[in-house]
Write a protein that binds this DNA or RNA. Structure first.
Length: 579
DNA sequence: GCCGTTTTCGGCCCGACTGTTTTCAGTCG
């Protein structure tokens, strides 16, 4: 039983309790428990075995017992009972914008409606507007909400949305009278997927800015337009909220709109303990405002240092800040190279010269040219005899180049039995060997885990690429015993990749943090097949930061010589272990 | 249901907006 599954049961329980109208604090307890279990960097099963469940924040005696029950029986009696009382189909109602647990309950109890189809029919027949607390407007909104739900795009990958948001910011800066502007929300926290774009500004002429905003070419529809808040929908199907705030409370508003919600709640609780009220308008003692112009004032008011947005998930950052143990996160500028780029030698579109020159323009110092191996025919895998040609090309380039240096690398395929697609005599010649699974995703967890472990034990393998194989919104991660993989990675000094391609971001933030805590190094690569995909590198850095990584945890912070030396040392160490 | 430098009971974050209401409940972020 995985953390994710336990968390999901608690989420469902919370939602069912909401519809039942249970104690809101009890509901929050289940939600918080779900969030904290999901964020664990160890298996909840292991904590249960050691009797340490109550060390998870938000888990007390009762919930610890319930976790044990889930681990032992695969479900929870409370959950099963609730499903008898409240039809689980009703949970779908909660996804309709504007529909919450109270309305869902009334609709079910008075009209007996429990499917979305029945709900739409009832709206069209105006059966809802006769209910207490409902009116014609509610009916219209539910119909609108149902339509929205049908064509809903859901959460979109960070790498898709961030450039749109940055373009809007650039246009607003250029075309309207504003002083300060920031992207807030989950985008600022660099979550792997985002639901909407939040932008915060200060301006002496807010209406002018709003006019510019609604007139931007990418805006499809204006949803709300006011003096302090305007919402639009972009042609790409995502909503953007633009908020104008008073310069005196810009910092408080930025903290507030950056979230996460769970993090904000903890900060405000700390405020309450100190007799302070913290909201988007500032920090207050009684009626008096004592701060809020800059974001760090919010943290300072509750005795904390400024916390980087990527950490603000209530995953222990507040406790770490209190203890003076916040990580010194790896900085974007500290990353010196892209470890995983494909060239014309396999299925990449660019020559090694083009790759190097593009890397130079991005301010990078080195690039790992990691083409596919011989067996991966669909991806133009490099046959053995061509490997030497590539090595010569890279050597000769490095001799000529004053700037960017290239690593002679490969992304060698991990075959179905865990052996590698090049023999050791060839692998040992590469500067950088990244091993990856490209087939046999349907194997079971044990088989897949053993495949990767066998690859890590090969002395010439330095990195495991995109370890889970997931594609955001397209393909689930294949089943792996990640804890075991991290354990063996540590044991064999093998690094794990943070694949920065926008659909992958694999490993994810939680696994990265588990790896970091275990002492495993991370290696960031864009997996670029076109040079401009090297632009995704900062997404990988963001994942590293969300995984609490510091400079020392990330191989990309080494310079070219340092990295080559490190990789050689790993291989000699592995060979010695084998002997 | 959790939790404690206002501790083992009585609290638990905060405000805006909407629609349905004569003063507020529900929803949202």
């Amino acid at each position: 039983m995985k953390n994710q599954e336990v968390a999901e049961i608690f989420r469902q329980v919370a939602a069912l309790l909401e519809i039942k109208g249970d104690n809101p604090y009890r509901i929050r307890a289940y939600q918080r428990a779900a969030q904290n279990i999901e964020a664990l960097t160890v298996e909840v099963e292991e904590l249960a075995a050691k009797g340490k469940l109550e060390r998870i924040p938000g888990i007390g005696k009762d919930l610890a017992q319930k976790i044990k029950e889930i681990l032992e029986t695969g479900t929870l009696s409370l959950y099963e009972e609730l499903k008898q009382e409240v039809p689980p189909e009703l949970l779908k109602f909660l996804e309709i914008p504007g529909m919450g647990p109270k309305k869902a309950k009334i609709i079910y109890e008075t009209l007996g409606i429990k499917s979305l189809e029945e709900l739409e029919k009832a709206c069209l027949e105006h059966k809802l507007s006769r209910l207490p607390g409902f009116g014609p407007k509610t009916e219209q909104n539910i119909l609108k909400g149902l339509k929205f739900l049908q064509q809903k795009v859901g959460r979109l990958p960070l790498g898709l949305v961030l450039p749109w948001a940055e373009e809007i910011v650039a246009l607003l800066k250029a075309q309207s009278p504003l002083e300060r502007i920031d992207i807030a929300g989950s985008l600022r926290r660099r979550r792997e997927t985002v639901k909407d774009i939040d932008i915060l500004i200060t301006s002496k002429k807010p209406l002018k800015v709003m006019d510019t905003f609604v007139g931007l070419p990418m805006v499809e529809e204006v949803l709300v337009k006011g003096e302090t808040k305007t919402s639009v929908r972009l042609r790409q199907g995502i909503n953007v909220d633009l908020r104008v705030v008073d310069p005196q409370c810009y910092g408080a508003a930025l903290a507030y709109f950056t979230g996460s919600k769970a993090h904000n709640i903890r900060i405000r609780e700390l405020g309450v303990q100190r007799g302070l009220k913290i909201n988007e308008y500032g920090i207050f003692r009684g009626q008096e405002r004592i701060g809020g112009k800059e974001e760090d004032e919010v943290f300072a008011a509750v005795g904390l240092p400024w916390i980087p947005p990527e950490l603000r998930e209530d995953r222990g950052e507040i406790e770490a800040a209190q203890a003076g143990k916040l990580p010194h996160l790896v900085a974007y500028e500290e990353v010196k190279g892209d470890a995983h780029v494909h060239s014309k030698f396999s299925d990449g579109a660019a020559s090694i010269e083009e790759i190097a020159s593009y890397a130079q323009s991005l301010g990078l110092k080195w690039v790992g040219i990691c083409d596919h191996s011989q067996g991966l025919k669909v991806a133009g895998g490099l046959p053995k005899e061509k490997v030497w040609e590539k090595r010569e090309a890279i050597r000769s380039f490095n001799k000529r180049s004053r700037g960017v240096k290239l690593l002679f690398g490969t992304e060698v395929d991990i075959l179905a039995d865990g052996s590698l697609d090049y023999p050791d005599e060839i692998l040992k010649e590469f500067d950088l060997v990244i091993a990856a699974i490209h087939s046999g995703f349907k194997q079971d967890e044990g088989t897949l885990t053993r495949r990767i472990i066998r690859a890590m034990k090969n002395p010439y393998v330095h990195v495991i690429a995109h370890p889970t194989g997931r594609l955001l919104g397209e393909r689930e991660p294949y089943p792996l015993d990640m804890e075991e993989i991290i354990r063996v990675a540590k044991e064999t000094k093998t690094a794990l990749e943070i694949n920065a391609y926008f659909k992958r971001l694999d490993l994810n933030d939680i696994h990265v943090r588990a790896a970091k805590e275990a002492g495993v190094k991370l290696c960031i690569g864009t997996d670029a097949h076109l040079v401009d995909q090297m632009h995704y590198l900062p997404l990988g850095i963001a994942v590293a930061r969300r995984g609490w990584c510091e400079k020392k945890d990330v191989l990309n912070t080494l310079d070219y010589k340092g990295l080559k030396k490190h990789l050689q040392e790993i291989t000699s160490w592995k060979l010695k272990q084998k002997a």
